[in-house]
Amino acid sequence: MLFYLRPFWPRRLGWLALLLWTWVAGAHGPWHEQILLVTEKLAQKPRDPELLAQRAELFLAHGFVDESRQDLVALETLQPGNLTNQLRRGWLELKARKTNAAIEQLTAWVKARPENLEGHFGLAQAYLLAGQPGAAETHLSRVLALSDEPRPELFLERAQAQVAAGLALTNTLAGLDEGIARLGPLPLLQKFAADLEMKRGEVAAAVARIQTIAARSERQERWLFLQGELFRQAGRTNDACGRYLAARSAWQALPDKLRRSYVATELRQQIDARLAEFTAASDR
């Protein structure tokens, strides 16, 4: 492992960590200090490949793409044919939004290192940027297969890529269920899966997915309302009405202080609006 985080990074994910970090969080303060520190060291040893690599990565993490490119070019001159520089260049091109170049570099890298998470994650991002969700989902699947404890987001991102690529809903649902099996019945994964169940006309399955969240929840009104929404969407008015009424009862049974959150009052308004719709319809 080559990268900045190496001194205290026991696993193989330093590079990915760095990039995920900047991807998600944006770069900031302490990295400036790191760059200054490495620059000072480089003044003593201007041709030290380790230092050049460190600074190239720090620049990239900090969003200084051109500066990073300069260091990487110098590094590539010092180490012609070095494979890892291909990974670095791939991520550099990705950050520079030169997706074709990124895909080219990263494809070569994962061909040589098929078990490398950083490569597959980079390729997935590059394909997403290039508007090729089908290819992106293949590499997201590799990332998930290679990760011990994947971020919950990755399952959602893959499912979204699969839907965008027009893959069979069964496969996408299986992928979400893999996430649920590995991470637990996360509300967001179950809600996304419920939407997909609706798309393929499986109303009962969609409602059952919301029920898995309800089963973990001390309060029921939100989940009963969502189940009502699913029935309503499917045109099953009586079932929907039943859930909305149950949601209202659950809401009314809440102690006063729980009803007074903004979310709870808003939900009550939504329940009442839905019930009013039904009353209006049955009056007609």
Partner: peptide
Amino acid sequence: NSGTQSGIYYDIFTLPTQGQAGGLPSG
């Protein structure tokens, strides 16, 4: 690193991911 739930902090602490101690699972 939170993305991979790895590194020293995550090695040292055992924290709930499944709502084991109440609340909804965060994964």
